[in-house]
Amino acid sequence: MIFKRRIVVLFGLLVSLVVTSAQAQINQSDPKEMVQELSQTVLKQIDLQREELNSDPEKVKAFADEYILPYVDTPKMARYVMGQYWRSATPKQQEEFTEAFKDTLLRSYSQSLIKLRVSKIKVTRVEEPREGRATVMTDVTQSDGNVSSVIYRAYLNNHTHKWMLYDVTIEGISLLLNYRKIFASEFDTKGIDQVIASLKEKNKV
């Protein structure tokens, strides 16, 4: 339960970062600068829009859906979550799972955007384990004084030459890895089509 709450808060933070980015014209040429610039605007933007978003849950989802895609590579996330099952899936199944997974993220976590109470976000270190890959480490201080270690993973898109976010880790636990473990069991017992159908049904609610 504690882990789930942390993931909710963390994904909300990720969503809120990308939500503010369009207005701030964030620099995507450098992973550190990207996260730094995003973090400078996120706190103010959440406070400014909290009441409006809180009054309309559907607007939160629509708002997140509109702004998250340019900065977070959801297709890459979906491929990782499917793991070995991605290779055996048909192109149609891959496309349908990617869309259903994106909708699941938005449905599950978009409301956490307005619940965030963060007082400070500080980039502490950036590592590039290999060319075109980066981990941006931050300390996130919540309003109650609790500090969490948050790591954003990014890669450089060779076609657009822009850095994209594709995973977030809190206190050593990866959002993507957590979902991959969950879905591995689902794919194994239900099959790809049934998992997709189940996600679509849940996303209607």
Score class of each variant (00 low, 15 high):
Asp139Gly: 02
Lys4Asn: 14
Ala89Tyr: 02
Ser119Thr: 14
Pro75Ala: 11
Tyr152His: 04
Glu99Cys: 03
Thr74Lys: 06
Tyr155His: 10
Val205Gly: 07
Arg153Val: 05
Leu106Gln: 03
Glu37His: 12
Asn54Asp: 00
Met77Arg: 08
Ala22Phe: 04
Ser29Cys: 14
Glu51Gly: 02
Lys32Asn: 10
Arg107Tyr: 14
Met77Gly: 13
Arg117Gln: 08
Glu127Thr: 15
Asn157Phe: 00
Met77Gln: 09
Arg117Val: 02
Glu186Phe: 12
Asp56Lys: 01
Pro31Phe: 04
Phe3Pro: 02
Val60Thr: 06
Lys92His: 09
Ile26His: 09
Thr104Trp: 09
Ser39Gly: 04
Met34Leu: 13
Thr189His: 01
Leu116Lys: 01
Val60His: 01
Asp65Trp: 11
Val35Ser: 05
Lys200Cys: 11
Arg6Trp: 04
Arg117Lys: 11
Ser108Trp: 02
Asp65Val: 09
Lys76Phe: 14
Val42Gly: 03
Arg130Ala: 13
Leu165Asn: 02
Ala134Lys: 11
Lys92Gln: 15
Asp56Trp: 00
Val72Met: 15
Gln142Leu: 10
Ile170Lys: 00
Arg125Asp: 11
Pro70Val: 12
Phe187Gln: 02
Gly83Val: 05
Glu37Trp: 06
Val8Phe: 12
Trp163Leu: 00
Asp188Tyr: 08
Gly132Ala: 08
Ala89Gly: 02
Arg133Asp: 09
Gln94Asn: 12
Leu199Tyr: 09
Asn27Arg: 13
Arg50Glu: 03
